[in-house]
Structure formats: structure tokens, C-alpha cells
Design a protein around this nucleic acid. Structure first.
Length: 807
DNA sequence: AGCACGCCGACT
DNA sequence: GTCGGCGTGCTC
């Protein structure tokens, strides 16, 4: 009988998406466990690849029909994934149709993704020139170095001559940050003896020995010894040689919030609605019920306080909690709120952290130092045990769905983990997704509502809809209506602040020739280039292509090139002209790319160093500035015109959200919405803050269009460098689908995508809408399997279960 | 992915 | 005749 391990190797292909069996070498028998990462030889050249151990079992080697290879080495001392995570990875790979290895990697912080380094190793005599010029007298060089020096062709030839071979090295990128410290090797009496034996004027040594006496088993950092006692590293090093102490490396955590002061806050008084919601969740937690709650509460109704108290209850019971928030609202303001309540017990995971900081936060959770995790989408994989509650705030947010493989939805993972831990899951929103709201209606979720604003004096703002069809002056589109300008002037005169939202989706500035109508488009994609005035360049938002701004038309050589559309930069310039003495802050992807820029801009606005905050979607979330009394939405309906059945829902959610930004203090707020579709129900009902009517109206539209939540959807996207290849293949797939699904199921397409060509690849899509289709997954798997040959010839196929974007 | 094996064109 | 093109198939 022999120990073997089943390993998922880091080769993301369909053919290798199964466990491979490896022998456990004797020296690893006590070490290896499920959930550890290992390095294994793979393929006929035995290149080293990383793998995850799924389980270890004992088999009879006689029943083994082929020779097994042995595990090379382990990469972890203890498992990095527990049984729950291994089970979740399996589940996720099936429901999202993605490779197991991709799922496993997704659960770990990105620094723990392995990188591979290749080395060229000399195995035979080579000429002295090569020995010195290429190998620098050593017996091996790294691939990266050789490539940089342009030696690859030469080395390839040498390899064909069997003079050198290629060695694969699996690198670990996660370095635990350590600081130098020391522990005493002597007990109290031994120190006394040593002290008696050295000169009294050896101050440094005397001092160090005194420190050692107070230390006992504790570790002291060099840093502390130097700062508090003036001990130099030299003294410590020589003490180590005398065996007084031992030098050790101490793991230290980078604390991204080290410079912030947090004062502890305690629970606020809940109103009766909040209390009822809180009680229900607490009961579910105490009874280990995996109930999903939909907590629907208008802006300002105090949802966050409910989350905080439910999580606090979990901590009281010795349990843990996860709170997911959209990346965009993970602002320093919100982070502070959690830190203030839970102090050291909270770990925060978000994209603003460096890879190292992220890893440290993850380690803090793994080592059970943090019991509460606050973070964006991927924080749902936090390695917490004994979870008491999982909260998904702003559950309708699209950013909870990952847009690359594995295409998981954090809300689904939350519910899965809730089942696993027997704990409640709380979905919170002022404007729930239609799917969640419908499930609450069908009693799949427990529906709880908060209808009162927590701070009673704050009122919902007055909302005015402005019909922009009447604001076209001299046939030219205007950015600002007279009404908005008037209001802005008024507010500025009173030294109040203004937030302006530019809904930029599908609406950015491009240039066009007035004489021949030529529009500057990307050479690689079917889309017009966007004008960026800060870098004086035309950029493609799909592939990143960049070129200079043309002065004359490349087609007709006219110099009548004009800018069209409304980008944030252009609006900023217009504002500057209209209100020359007013401070304006622009927030969009360009001005917030740098780390910490987001925070800085908001702080500046918070200190009232600027009066106007102009931005895209990112300003709609969670900001709380009491002095803002006017919110202007410059173009409410650009999203409405998009060919996506969720466009009304997205518009309603956005408008409701921004309306909540006005009048949070004691001053009444006003909202002005500029639109070309003033009668549209999404706009009218957002104006009235009427979610329920919107829900009813939209459900009728979804029912008529056979859309979710009445139907499930799948999107299949194929792409290839040649249009004919992908089109043909997609027609075949659609045909096969029609043949194998029930007649109640709708197969749409294939159709070219709205932007058909991106990066010189042609994109086609098929959408499946179905109610019951038990064999669908099997059919889709079959399609993927049968497409292997084409995939190897350059076709790309992605399957997205329940996609959020159809464009 | 990466590599070996295997079958057809232009070369010492 | 051979070197090398990349189509095909396999990896415990």
C-alpha cells in the first residue's frame, strides 16, 4: 500500500481539468495534506508545475496500471485552502463552467499565484565565447536575462544540439515580511553570572543583558532595542556569537491604516424597524438557519447600523462575519466606520491595497487574528471559519459579478457559504435587483423593509426632471440647461456645494470632420477613439490603442475637425468658463487611477476647497457631504438607450442613488435630472423615490420580453481573427442548441456583438433564455468539448451563466 | 500550456 | 536525400 495525492495541476485546459495522481515520497508522508500547494513533474519532459492537493489516499500499487510520478516538493507548511474551499472550488467550476485550477487560484490572494522561471542549463562543452558572453562563466542563466540580451535564437540552436537543457523553476511570490529580532537564550540567573564576568564600563553589553533579563520568552525587535535602549545591531550580533541570545525573523504585518487614528464607537440606538430586522437575523444566526434575507431600506434608513450590530452579535457568540461592499464604495469613509466599531478584529480587502498588503490582511484572517472581513467581491473567499453572518451590501451592484473566468457572482457564493456554515445571509439594498426582489416576493428570501429615515430631520430631496429636448439652442446640444445653471449660480452664491454626475456609459468624446463626416476610429476595433485632453491623445477604450490628435482630416484634408460628445474633461472646461472663480474637482477613471487619489480628491471636496464635484458613476456611492445641496445629473438617459434589457433598472438605481447624495445635512437638498426621455418610467419613478412601482412596472416589461427573473439566461461569446470562422462556428453551435433544448427555450442569435471587432478579433454571441432545462449544463459541456479542435486553432469561446451585460 | 511525434515542402 | 514547417495528441 502506498500514499498517493490527487492533484489539480496549473495547466488551464479542458484536457487537464481532472485530478492527476502522484506518489507521496516517504519524506513528505507526514507533511502532505489536502489544500496544500505542491510542485509536480508534468508531461513527457517533466517540467515543474504547481498543483493543489485535493486529497491524500492510500492505494494498492498493484492495481495501478501505469507508473505514477512522485511529488517534487510542497510549497506550504500548512494547507492554504480548507475542506470548505476545496468543495466550493469544485462547485464553482461546475456552475460557472470554468477550470478547477482557475477556481482554486481565484480563492487565494494574487501574490500566491505562482510564477514560473525558466533557466538554460549547460550540459555539454560549449565554445569559450558562449561560455563567457552568454553564460557569464556560470553554468546556467535565466530565460528572462537571455531574452533581454537577445540570445534566444542561439540558445534554441544549442538546445537542439543537446548542449543545454531548460530547467523550470516554480517561484513563490508571497514573501512574508519580516523584521529582525532576538530572543534570550539565558534565564535570569545565567544573565547574572554573565554580567558578573564582564567589565562594568561595557555599557552596551550591560544594558543588553539587563534587557534580556526582562525579556523572558518574548521576542524583541532590533528596532525597539535601538529606539528604547540605544542598543546597536553590532552589540546584538556579538551577543549572538556568545550564545546569550538568538537572532530570529519576526513576521510583521504591513498595516495600510497605520497612519490613521480610529476612535472606538459603540452601537447606536436602533429604531423599531431596524430592531425588528436585527432581531430576525440574530435569531436565524442563533438557530443556525441558512436563511437569506433581503433587507430593503431607503437611503439613510440605517442599513449599515443593522449590519454592524448583527456582526457584533456574531462576534459575541465567538463567530465571524463577512461584509461585502462594492469596490467603488469601499472608500476611506466607509472603511473607517468598520474600523471604529471593530478595531483590530477587522480585516479589509480591496483593490487599493498593494499585493503585499492584501496578502498580509489575508494572513491575518487565516491566523484568526481578524474575525470580521470587509471587502469587495473576492473577499467572499476569506478563509474564515465558523461564520455567523454574511452581508452583501448594495446587492444589486454589477461589480459582484466577475467579468472573467470564473464568472462567479459573489451573491451566489455568499449563499453557498451560508448553507455550508448554517448561517444567515443578508442582501441589502435601497434598490434591489429585480431577481432578488422577485425571490423575496416568492418567499425564497425573507423580505425585511426599512421605510423610515434613521435621522428624522433629513428629508428626501426635491427632484426636478428637465426636458432637454427643449434645450437645444441653434441646433447645438447643450450640456447645461438654463434651470440647472440658475440653480448652480444660486447655490454657489450661498457657498453651498454641488455634485454633478455625468453618465458616461457609451457617451464619450470623439472627433469628427465637419466637411466629410469622417470619424476617427481604432484600427484594431470597430469603435471611435476617445479624446483625452490631459495626455493630448486619442485612445481606444477597448484595446488601449493610442495616437496623436489629428489636426487635419485624414480623409479629405479639411481642417474642420471638431470635438463631439461630452466627456468629463470637456464638461470640466465648460464649467471652468462658466464659473471661472469656482474650484472644480473632476473624478473619473483618469483622475483616480493613482493609489490614494480617490481619497485625496474627496478629502479636498469635504474640506470645501472646491465647490463643484464632477464625476462619473463613482461619485454616486456612499459619499456623505452635508454641505451638498444640489445634485445635477447631466445626462440621465445615455444608459437607457443601450440595447440591454437591464438599462431601465440600471438607470433607476443610479438616479435613486445620486438623489440620496443631496440634503444629508440639515439643509434641504435638490436634485435636477436632465434627460431626453422625461416621461420614461425609470426617470419618473426615480423622481418620486418609488421603488415598488418601478418594480411592478419593470416586472411587466421583463415578463413580456421573456427576460430574468422570469427566465434564466446564458451568453455564449465566440471570437476569432477571421470573421467567417467564428460566424460559421457560432451558427453550428446555435443549431446544435436548438436541436437539444426544449421548445420553451429561446435561442437568440448568433449575432455580431455591438462592437464586433476588438483587438482585431471578431466577436459573435448567442443568448439562451430558459425556464427549465435540466440537461443544459451537459449540452454546454458537450459543445465546449466538441469545440476543442477549433479552440486550438485560435477560436475563443466563453460561456457566461446569468450574465449582467449583454452588450 | 508545452512538448514530442509525425507527415509534407525547399534546401545543403 | 535531409532540415524544418506546424497539425495532432498527451500529460498521473
Amino acid at each position: 500500500m502506498t500514499d498517493v495525492a490527487e492533484v489539480i495541476v496549473d495547466v488551464p485546459t479542458m484536457q487537464t481539468d481532472i485530478p492527476f495522481t502522484y506518489l507521496v515520497p516517504p519524506e513528505l508522508q507526514q507533511v502532505i495534506q489536502a489544500g496544500m500547494r505542491v510542485v509536480v513533474p508534468f508531461g513527457n519532459s517533466n517540467r515543474k508545475v504547481q498543483g493543489f492537493v485535493l486529497n491524500v489516499k492510500n492505494i494498492d500499487e498493484k492495481t495501478q496500471e501505469f507508473e505514477l510520478k512522485a511529488i517534487d516538493r510542497v510549497m506550504d507548511i500548512s494547507p492554504v485552502l480548507n475542506q470548505e474551499m476545496l468543495a466550493l472550488a469544485e462547485e464553482m467550476s461546475q456552475t460557472t463552467m470554468s477550470f478547477k485550477i482557475t477556481c482554486l487560484q481565484t480563492m487565494l490572494p494574487s501574490v500566491m499565484k505562482t510564477s514560473y522561471e525558466k533557466y538554460f542549463v549547460l550540459i555539454d562543452e560549449v565554445s569559450e565565447d558562449i561560455q563567457f558572453d552568454v553564460f557569464k562563466g556560470l553554468h546556467e542563466i535565466s530565460w528572462t536575462e537571455a531574452e533581454a540580451q537577445g540570445h534566444l535564437p542561439l540558445l534554441t540552436r544549442l538546445r537542439n544540439e543537446d548542449k543545454i537543457e531548460v530547467r523550470y523553476e516554480v517561484l513563490k511570490r508571497n514573501k512574508i515580511k519580516t523584521k529582525r529580532g532576538f530572543v534570550s537564550l539565558l534565564d535570569f540567573e545565567q544573565v547574572e553570572e554573565v554580567r558578573a564576568g564582564i567589565r562594568a564600563n561595557a555599557h552596551q553589553q550591560q544594558c543588553l543583558l539587563a534587557v534580556l533579563q526582562t525579556l523572558q520568552d518574548k521576542t524583541m525587535l532590533y528596532q525597539e532595542a535601538q529606539k528604547n535602549y540605544g542598543l546597536t545591531p553590532g552589540t546584538i550580533r556579538s551577543a549572538a556569537e556568545k550564545k546569550w541570545l538568538q537572532i530570529v525573523d519576526v513576521e510583521v504585518q504591513r498595516d495600510p491604516y497605520a497612519n490613521h487614528e480610529f476612535k472606538e464607537t459603540s452601537a447606536e440606538q436602533l429604531n423599531d424597524e431596524q430592531q425588528t430586522a436585527c432581531d430576525e437575523m440574530v435569531h436565524a444566526m442563533d438557530d443556525n438557519q441558512a436563511t437569506t434575507f433581503l433587507l430593503q431600506g431607503i437611503t439613510g434608513s440605517g442599513k449599515t447600523e443593522v449590519y454592524l450590530q448583527v456582526i457584533a452579535h456574531a462576534l459575541d457568540q465567538g463567530k465571524t462575519g463577512i461584509l461585502l461592499v462594492p469596490e467603488i464604495s469601499l472608500t476611506p469613509q466607509t472603511v473607517r466606520r468598520f474600523k471604529e466599531r471593530f478595531g483590530e478584529e477587522v480585516a479589509v480587502l480591496h483593490s487599493g491595497l498593494s499585493e503585499g498588503e492584501r496578502y498580509d490582511e489575508w494572513r491575518k484572517i487565516e491566523k484568526k487574528q481578524a474575525h470580521v472581513v470587509v471587502g469587495a467581491r473576492s473577499a467572499i473567499f476569506a478563509p474564515l471559519e465558523n461564520i455567523g453572518v454574511i452581508v452583501v451590501d448594495e446587492e444589486h451592484e454589477g461589480s459582484y459579478k466577475q467579468e472573467e473566468s470564473p464568472r462567479y457572482h459573489a451573491r451566489d457564493i455568499a449563499i453557498w457559504r451560508g448553507e455550508y456554515h448554517g448561517c444567515p445571509v443578508v442582501l441589502g439594498s435601497a434598490t434591489p435587483s429585480l431577481e432578488s426582489r422577485a425571490r423575496a416576493q416568492k418567499k425564497v428570501y425573507r423580505h425585511l423593509q426599512l421605510t423610515k429615515r434613521a435621522s428624522s430631520e433629513a428629508q428626501l430631496p426635491d427632484t426636478t426632471v428637465i426636458d432637454m429636448r427643449h434645450v437645444i439652442a441653434k441646433g447645438k446640444m447643450q450640456t447645461f440647461s438654463p434651470q440647472l445653471l440658475e440653480r448652480m449660480t444660486e447655490k454657489l452664491a450661498r457657498e453651498e456645494q454641488i455634485v454633478l454626475l455625468l453618465n458616461r456609459r457609451g457617451y464619450s468624446s470623439f472627433i469628427m470632420c465637419r466637411d466629410c463626416g469622417y470619424v476617427h476610429t481604432c484600427p484594431n476595433c470597430d469603435i471611435s477613439l476617445t479624446l483625452h485632453m490631459d495626455s493630448y491623445a486619442m485612445k481606444c477604450h477597448y484595446c488601449g490603442h493610442e495616437e496623436a490628435i489629428p489636426k487635419i482630416c485624414p480623409e479629405c484634408h479639411s481642417n474642420k475637425i471638431r470635438y463631439y460628445g461630452t466627456g468629463t474633461q470637456k464638461v470640466e472646461e465648460e464649467l471652468q468658463t462658466l464659473f471661472p472663480d469656482t474650484g472644480i474637482i473632476r473624478m473619473d477613471v483618469d483622475t483616480t487611477r493613482r493609489k490614494g487619489a480617490h481619497e485625496k480628491l474627496l478629502d479636498t471636496f469635504g474640506r470645501h476647497e472646491a465647490s463643484i464635484l464632477l464625476g462619473t458613476q463613482m461619485i454616486a456611492k456612499g459619499l456623505d457631504f452635508p454641505n451638498v445641496t444640489l445634485v445635477g445629473v447631466l445626462n440621465a438617459d445615455t444608459a437607457l438607450n443601450l440595447p440591454d434589457f437591464r438599462s431601465s433598472e440600471k438607470t433607476f438605481q443610479l438616479l435613486t442613488q445620486v438623489s440620496g447624495r443631496a440634503g444629508r445635512g440639515d439643509k434641504p437638498g435638490e436634485v435636477l435630472i436632465q434627460t431626453f426621455n422625461p416621461e420614461h418610467y425609470a426617470i419618473q419613478l426615480a423622481k418620486k423615490h418609488d421603488y415598488e412601482s418601478f418594480y411592478q412596472t419593470e416586472m411587466v416589461a421583463r415578463h413580456q420580453g421573456n427576460y430574468p427573473p422570469f427566465f434564466f439566461t446564458v451568453q455564449i461569446v465566440g471570437s476569432h481573427e477571421e470573421e467567417i470562422t467564428v460566424a460559421k462556428k457560432m451558427y453550428e453551435i446555435a443549431e446544435q442548441l436548438v436541436q437539444s433544448v426544449s421548445d420553451k427555450t429561446i435561442v437568440l442569435g448568433p449575432t455580431p456583438k455591438a462592437v464586433m471587432r476588438v483587438n482585431n478579433r471578431y466577436f459573435y454571441q448567442i443568448v439562451i433564455k430558459y425556464k427549465f432545462e435540466s440537461e443544459l449544463m451537459t449540452v454546454l459541456k458537450k459543445i465546449l468539448n466538441e469545440s476543442q479542435q477549433e479552440i486550438q486553432r485560435g477560436l475563443k469561446l466563453t460561456i457566461d451563466m446569468e450574465p449582467l451585460n449583454f452588450i
